[in-house]
Design a binder for these strands. Structure first.
Lengths: 168, 168
DNA sequence: GGTGGATCATTGAAGACTCAACGATCCGTT
DNA sequence: AACGGATCGTTGAGTCTTCAATGATCCACC
């Protein structure tokens, strides 16, 4: 068999079970290209960051969001939402960053439950050191490989996917 | 600052350092949409598989490739290459699948170093049980969210990314 | 036909992420 | 003002992945 490939739709029995709408060969090809391509891409980018800057991709993403925020500070929950990472994951990532001195936690004035994550000067310096290499890698492996139209298409498609998921 | 965002290209000093070609606002938006969208998508698909079929996405992928191969058998290295997973990761994934009785290892006739991974009947049954729900999830969160053109654009873009990476 | 550099797969430890459970705080309702 | 459900963030255990090191086999070449 070739599960999740193009198949004759199961001739509808009287079973009441929704027949599976398999993907056709083309759809499946695109889906697999997506899976494999993203795997290789994330792998290459993570490797570059780790090798050249001793940061994981998620640590880098956290630092970038902080660098763009007023006072270089962001609530844990906002970090989680913006990066689409679980709260638990953000807690663990921030704990590592804090241990490295790149970030520090502060109580949140307006909400006793909240925790603010503030990027230290060392954190900013570390990000600034890491950014050029990372951006170059994003170019080499993604942006410069695609036409402008292709990159836009990917961006818009993934925005649609994201919005659909955030409704469900 | 806003690292990896659109910036005035550093006025070229005489330092001999290649100026960083930052991403412009649009490129960066697409790149982030890609990061966040793929994160949410993989999360949703992995969750569905784990909940409904007690399989991880990588276990599922291994089973699919095996199901499509002659004799439901594939070399470990081919599994790794096709899925873009490390050899070590494949070893661990297959070990778990073997422990669950879904797969078994066999010596490879033509190559004494090689190991063939063969999918058992139980493995096939497990895959067939998992497939409808998974395919439906891929539709709900990706395929049915996009137009045919968008899906093709994504597939072709990621194919280009993949090929570029496999050359470097 | 032996040597030396590749490829294949595994191993174990370290690292990162998930999951469920938890305590604390917030806030709408009564 | 007290209840009760919801949100926030953390925790620790379990799971998955990476990384570096290893042993085994293959093969091109001398």
């Amino acid at each position: 068999m070739s599960t999740s490939s193009s198949q004759t739709p199961t001739p509808s029995t009287a079973s009441g079970v929704e027949p599976v709408r398999w993907l056709d060969a083309e759809q499946q090809g695109h889906w697999r290209a997506f899976l494999v391509g993203t795997a290789r891409l994330q792998d290459a980018l993570g490797r570059q960051l780790d090798r050249d800057s001793d940061l994981s991709l998620s640590e880098y993403e956290v630092l970038v969001r902080l660098s763009e925020s007023p006072d270089r500070t962001l609530r844990m929950s906002l970090l989680a939402d913006e990066l689409a990472h679980s709260r638990s994951r953000i807690t663990h990532t921030v704990r590592r960053l804090e241990a490295a001195g790149l970030v520090e936690r502060q109580a949140c004035d307006s909400d006793g439950r909240g925790v603010n994550c503030h990027m230290t000067d060392a954190g900013l310096a570390r990000l600034e050191a890491a950014a050029p290499g990372h951006v170059q890698a994003v170019r080499t492996h993604l942006v410069d490989v695609l036409t402008d139209d292709q990159l836009r298409a990917v961006g818009e498609a993934m925005t649609a996917v994201r919005e659909a998921l955030e409704r469900g």
